Simulated scan of single mutants.
Amino acid sequence: MSTVALAVTDGVSHFELAAPCEVFGVDRSDLVDPWYELAVCGPADARVGGRFRLEPDRGLDRLVHADTVIVPACADIDAEPPDELVDAVRAAHQAGARVVSLCTGAFVLAAAGLLDGRRATTHWMHAAALAARYPRVRVDADVLYVGDGNVLTSAGKAAAMDLCLHLVRLDHGSAIANAVARRLVVPPHRPGGQAQFVSTPLPDPRSHALAALFPWAMQRLDQPLTVRDLARQANMSSRNLARHFNAITGTTPLRWLHAQRIHRAQELLETTDDSVDAIAGATGMGTAASLRRHFNRTVGVPPDTYRRTFRNVPPRQAGSRNPGHG
């Protein structure tokens, strides 16, 4: 069983504490057995958001025994993080733990020296402060989350949930991560490289200009779609399509299409016995050689290796009638 430890101190943020509790702390052994074991580690007098008193399972000294350590948002980025917390996070990393920060938790990882020379992110409002205080950190304020070795950081709020689901995806594959996302009624996958914010507010997903285009394209991933095909279907020029795509997804039409093809290939590798040739055809990659090249470049391993790692029985549908119930 993989153990996940939440490193909490006084004033920790509500949302960044709740997100990992919901993802890792709810028994989902019907999807993967055993599921994660979650422990909340911190001082006995810690409060959430300065209002609710926590009852931690263990002290911060127990972080060193966890497989994954998650540091939620700091209460005050202008104050130095507690030495006890910094020392415990550093010790956990030295012991081999995967260390993750959510939002301004990156300041704790930076204080522990874990981000020196690494690419990292935090909430865009505090990225400049992180870069100024810790000049050895390669701060990227334009992404939702980023991983550099066994150290991962995220932007704020919703991006914290994105990173938690990304951890599940790394550990158990896309099918399981998507099943958890469905139960939480959140997007199944937002790539870490997606922009933290856009220049104009996002429209309601049911009414924006590409609302009908996305499902249309998803149903035709086996076809050689081009930007011109997408623009024609959306009844707009290619330039206008690109502008809408950037505003809504933070990326280009072709990059979005490529990401969807790779995600579909991951799901098929996990849940079917289809050959790599067949999956290449089903995802519009053309040939097995093309799929292997793009898959390895994007995911980091060849399709066959991915299948052996994440070959799971399709998630059971019991209880899925109420997807809002965790």
Rank of each mutant, 00 (worst) to 15 (best):
E80T: 15
T252M: 06
A127Y: 01
R133G: 09
D57Y: 02
V301M: 10
V180E: 04
V99P: 00
H166T: 13
V4M: 03
M236H: 08
A112H: 01
R90C: 05
D162Q: 11
T309Q: 06
V108T: 09
V64R: 06
V137D: 00
I77H: 09
R51K: 15
P34A: 01
S238Q: 15
R321H: 14
P215S: 13
A110P: 00
A5R: 09
D140Q: 13
S174G: 10
T3A: 05
L152F: 06
P315Y: 11
P203K: 02
V4F: 00
A66I: 04
L114G: 01
A209H: 10
F245V: 02
V8Y: 01
H258M: 14
G11C: 06
L291Q: 06
F52A: 13
L115R: 01
H14W: 12
R321G: 14
C21G: 09
D78K: 13
D45Q: 10
G156S: 12
D116I: 08
F24D: 00
D10H: 08
F107H: 04
A39Y: 03
P303G: 05
H14N: 10
N178P: 06
F310H: 11
E22G: 05
D27W: 10
A18C: 12
L213G: 00
C103D: 03
F245Y: 07
D140C: 06
D148G: 03
P81T: 15
G193E: 11
A19H: 04
Q260L: 11
V168S: 07
R90V: 07
V168P: 02
T251S: 13
H263C: 08
R183L: 06
P191A: 13
G59A: 11
G11H: 02
A159S: 11
V180N: 04
